[in-house]
Amino acid sequence: MKQFVTAFGAEPEGVWAAPGRVNLIGEHTDYNDGFVLPFALPHRTVVGASRLDSPRWTVWSEQADEQIDFDLSERVTGWGAYVAGVVWVLREAGFDVPGAQMAITSDVPLGAGLSSSAALESAVLTALVDLGGLDLPVDERPALAQKAENEYAGMPCGIMDQSASIRCRAGHALFLDCRSLDVEHIPFDVATDGLAVLVIDTRAPHRHVTGEYAKRRETCEEAARVLGVPALRDATLSSVSSLPDEVMRRRARHVVTEDQRVLDTVELLRSGRIREIGPLMTASHASMRDDFEITVPEVDTAVEAALSAGAYGARMTGGGFGGCVLALVDADAAPTVADAVVAAYRAKGFTPPESFSAIPSGGATRL
């Protein structure tokens, strides 16, 4: 790995990678003990690493063009918190984490809702587990990566992003029950059906840690307390309608209906009816826009333009307030749909978006 050689003057002991992800459907359901359906992207964060004899970690990031050096006596901030958080959480779990030199590079777009943070955590975690010969089963790794982001980096995310980055399989979407953590790999080979999932980076970077994401989570948890259920996964539309606060009713209604849309999408995909998931995607977006209120004008414009240009369905993906839009399209129509979104942006004076067709890919691995 040339980045490691540049930073440290030698070849690494190994190179590991973990992908970004998009969520086909199931937004803000993960921390409500619900259901999600992400798939991994071919875009990856790559970590070259070698062991050190002392409990220190020296990390160089190509994207940040910065090197940090830390031990567990100090608190790391910025991008390094996602690396230090992984070391911390492994030590908290009782593992003897080896000191290491690491060089990091990534082609997962930052701030686009494609889970660049989970890709970084998952790549670092996979590297340290292998370097240290740690006995940590793959199905237990997402929870530790999530804890690193929640408790060290300060982002109250659910477990979906880390699960997708670590556990996804090529050609499949990951049907995850966020309560039991059971997974099922659902065939999602869009190319065979002459389809594509167009990912549109709306160029409206989201900023979750500023508080809006946390506020939505707090409202959902309060709604569950009022309803007397463990989580909104256990609520019904009828019970939600009894909530005393209108905003809380709308937030809870999104979660309950979104869980059902995930289950309906999985049933359609199991029977190979990929095109028929389009209306569920579009309904998901409407719910995020109207009930959960996490979309922004650039995102709504991209969805409307994609649908007008012939997409079977379109929706925002990710935590909201910017990020990316997914559009299910005929493969040969993808350039036309992308051009339609560009034209709509131009008419409104928005920064031009960028698009690519997503290929469902595999999870974290040693290269």
Rank of each mutant, 00 (worst) to 15 (best):
T6H: 13
G9A: 07
P12G: 09
V15M: 03
A17G: 10
A18H: 00
A18N: 03
R21S: 04
T29D: 02
D33A: 13
P38T: 11
F39A: 12
P55V: 00
A64P: 00
A64E: 11
D65A: 15
V83I: 13
Q101N: 15
P109S: 08
P109H: 01
G113N: 10
S116G: 04
A118M: 06
D130V: 08
D130Y: 14
P142Y: 11
P142T: 08
A143G: 14
A145L: 09
E149P: 02
G158Q: 03
M160I: 08
C168W: 05
D182K: 14
V183W: 02
V190M: 08
T192D: 14
L195T: 12
A196F: 07
V197L: 15
P205S: 09
V209C: 06
V209K: 13
G211V: 07
R217I: 14
A223G: 07
V229T: 09
P230F: 13
T236I: 06
L237M: 12
S239Y: 01
E246A: 15
R250I: 04
H254G: 00
H254E: 05
E276N: 05
I277N: 06
A286D: 14
M288T: 11
R289E: 07
I294M: 11
I294K: 03
V296I: 12
A309D: 02
G310T: 13
G313T: 06
R315Q: 08
A327S: 11
L328N: 03
A331H: 14
D332S: 15
A343M: 09
Y345Q: 00
Y345F: 01
R346D: 15
K348M: 08
F356C: 06
P360Q: 12
